[in-house]
């Protein structure tokens, strides 16, 4: 029951994010979708992931997008709903992909297994996993984030002589 409510909120937020005219409204709808998804994670027993989802997506990514929108808007032009010229075929591709996925889910054997008991995922276990078995991926992610940080600053930095 609760799952249905939050799934509906998530989907509604996603649809609104992709269809609203105003970009800032899109981002606010997107945060709604992210938050709904975080609640779904919490319901599935992934407490850490749900909270990290809110922290990273609502607290960081959404704000990043908002900054980008305010930095790239065309001086107070009325936001137009511009779609791609090939929107019919693009929409057909999206609908077809959903159809295939839904068909696969409906016919797969995996979804007919009995529901196992709630697995344990304490912070202790996640920490141990990150530090022992998944230590190398963690280091690589750290390296990647550092590279992304430096790269983003280098790309976006405002160089005076280049704008002339």
């Amino acid at each position: 029951m609760l799952f249905t409510i939050f799934a509906t909120i998530t989907v509604a937020g996603a649809v609104a994010a992709m269809s609203l005219r105003n970009l800032v409204h899109s981002v606010l709808a997107l945060t709604l979708a992210f938050a709904g998804l975080a609640v779904v994670y919490l319901q599935l027993g992934a407490q850490f992931i749900g909270l990290a989802q809110i922290l990273v997506y609502v607290g960081a990514v959404a704000i990043l997008i908002v900054f980008a929108i305010l930095l790239t808007r065309d001086a107070e032009a009325t936001p137009k709903f511009i779609v791609d010229r090939s929107w019919k075929s693009s929409g057909a591709v999206a609908i077809a992909s959903f159809g295939v996925l839904a068909w696969a889910i409906h016919h797969s054997a995996a979804s007919r297994h009995a529901v196992p008991p709630q697995p344990e995922a304490t912070m202790q276990q996640i920490g141990n996993g990150l530090m022992m078995r998944f230590a190398l991926p963690l280091e690589i992610i750290g390296l990647l984030l550092t590279a992304a940080l430096i790269g983003a600053v280098t790309i976006a930095i405002h160089e005076k002589q280049e704008t002339r």
Binding site: L51, A52, I54, G59, T122
Partner: peptide
């Protein structure tokens, strides 16, 4: 179990 993380997650909202 992740109380401190919850705090920072909500305050980022």
């Amino acid at each position: 179990d992740a109380g401190v993380l919850y705090f920072f997650a909500v305050s980022s909202v």
